[in-house]
Write a protein that binds this DNA or RNA. Structure first.
Length: 470
RNA sequence: GUCCCCAUCGUCUAGAGGCCUAGGACACCAGCCUUUCACGCUGGCGACACGGGUUCGAAUCCCGUUGGGGACGCCA
């Protein structure tokens, strides 16, 4: 198995899914999963792109089982292979100029047909070729494709797909500068890397026919092809930047967990009955190409979010804390870390990504610097002596009794004594402590904050109130 | 335009001729739970693109129509 991205940009989620399918298939069958960087287009390839792709794959747990192969490293061998074909008469030199090719293209377009090279140099007289060579006229090397019949492939996802020989022309193997083309390099590398199965996007389906021809020319059996349907945007169009986030890095930054992204991706085009949640181990156990569908799937970020919420809750507080801390952008002392770990389990059910989790965690780490609109409203709607009574009730709970249950008991008693609804005392207290009306469960939060911090926050809140109401 | 592929709720999908008055998940709506926000629970909405065949019987097989996607480079 191999995943072979070209480093002309970031790792996009469609590519990540292809890599995942390859990886799962390899693990399921105990085979190896390799990575090959198709960097032969030196003008468009960049080291930054390679790095980003590698980081993205590592994050998803899709690292190569063996040393990474760079396609550019094999160019000399690939070219030699083409020479061999030339010597055997399976390929030929073509001296057609780009103007001639343009003419063919235009003629084809006018006739409403796809561009096909007319094979004008395929069976030229050897002396003519020799004189061109002697005059060092630039040429490309083309493969002799069959003139009639059809080419058939057995695709593990698409089934048997055949195409008429007339739909294929004599593809270029070596450019006029002597460098191998993608088509040649892919086959040469897959052969060299001993690739048994090629799982890739179905935009490569037509390439499979041409590559099959090359395998034949080399007298080798082609690998098993599996062309999986492409991923589309929410509007059914090809996934592109206008669909929002499409790079793996963006999802990582958005606070998505790799478990969630893999879980989401594997369910696009593949299913195992009604099961929605898959751990990596389960995927590896259950994955099979037979269960991969042929129709394209649309990307739905809401379902991804849902899955992310699920995997967030499965994560260990320790590892979540590690993810959260860099997203906090506020100083964190030992006490803060302790609170964070304690608070995480109840925080995590309230959010669906790491950024929101970090944001939610701040109540535990920073005292509010004021009351928001809803908070102010709650306070102004309750009796003016309520804050003071709340403080007294809380103060009455000793350090030894500082537990959620005791705190709740004290507040329930207070509400009863004033014939107030419980909510009418709980909400003002929440506002005093957090500055707002939304927070984790009040008493649990107070327990974690600790008596000192709670009393301190209450005192500052009272000062704030006094300053506002002269 | 030519060739290839696809077609079940808004979305992802289950479904391999009778198990289907089509199941699950997300989203959406209603209710319950509740100290806020969430979680959770219960219920609801909602699809076999269309037209012909084949068959005792079709979401499932065949043909056509329509719609969508992909490929048509000395890019990868």
């Amino acid at each position: 198995m191999r995943f072979a991205p070209s480093p002309t940009g970031f790792l996009h989620i469609g590519g990540a899914r292809t890599a995942l399918f390859n990886h799962l298939f390899a693990r399921h069958h105990g085979g190896a999963y390799l990575l090959r960087i198709e960097d032969t287009d030196r003008a468009r390839s960049s080291q930054e792109a390679v790095d980003e792709i590698l980081q993205g794959l590592a994050w998803l747990g899709l690292e190569s089982d063996e040393a990474i192969v760079y396609q550019s490293a094999g160019q000399a061998q690939h070219a030699a292979l083409a020479e061999e074909l030339l010597a055997r008469g399976a390929a030929y030199r073509c001296f057609a100029t780009s103007e001639e090719l343009d003419q063919m293209r235009q003629a084809a377009k006018a006739a409403g047909k796809p561009m096909r090279y007319d094979r004008r140099w395929r069976d030229r007289d050897e002396s003519e070729v020799a004189s061109k060579v002697a005059a060092s006229t630039p040429f490309v090397v083309r493969l002799k494709a069959p003139l009639e019949g059809s080419v058939e492939i057995e695709d593990a996802v698409q089934g048997t797909v055949a195409v008429q020989a007339s739909a294929l022309d004599d593809m270029i193997l070596l450019r006029s500068d002597g460098t191998p083309t993608y088509m040649l390099s892919v086959v040469a590398d897959d052969l060299a890397m001993n690739i048994s199965h090629v799982i890739r996007g179905d935009d490569h389906l037509t390439n499979a026919f041409r590559q099959t021809l090359l395998y034949r020319a080399f007298d080798k059996a082609p690998p098993v092809f599996a062309h999986i349907p492409l991923l589309h945007g929410a509007d059914g169009q090809k996934l592109s930047k206008r669909h929002g986030a499409i790079s793996v890095t963006e999802y990582r930054q958005a606070g998505i967990l790799p478990e969630a992204l893999c879980n989401y991706l594997v369910r696009l085009g593949w299913a195992h009955g009604d099961q929605e949640i898959f751990s990596r181990t389960e995927m590896e156990k259950l994955f099979s190409l037979e269960a991969v569908g042929k129709s394209a799937a649309r990307f739905d970020s809401e379902k991804l979010e849902h899955l992310n919420a699920h995997w967030l809750r499965q994560a260990k507080p320790q590892s979540l804390a590690q993810e959260i801390i860099p997203r906090l952008n506020c100083p964190l002392d030992a006490e803060g870390q302790k609170r964070l770990i304690q608070a995480l389990p109840s925080l995590v059910v309230r959010v669906s990504d790491l950024n929101a989790l970090a944001h939610a965690a701040k109540v535990y780490l920073q005292a509010p610097d004021g009351f928001d609109d809803k908070g102010s409203k709650i306070l102004s709607e309750s009796a003016s002596d309520l804050p003071a009574r709340l403080v007294r009730a809380v103060e009455a709970v000793s350090q030894d009794n500082w537990h959620a249950e005791e705190l709740e008991k004290a507040l329930r008693l207070l509400a009863e004594n004033h014939t107030l609804k419980f909510k009418a005392v709980a909400q003002p207290l929440r506002v005093l402590l957090t500055g707002t009306t939304i927070s984790p469960p009040l008493f649990e939060m107070m327990e974690i904050l600790g008596r000192t911090e709670v009393l301190h926050r209450l005192a500052t809140a009272q000062d704030l109130l006094k300053a506002r109401i002269p």
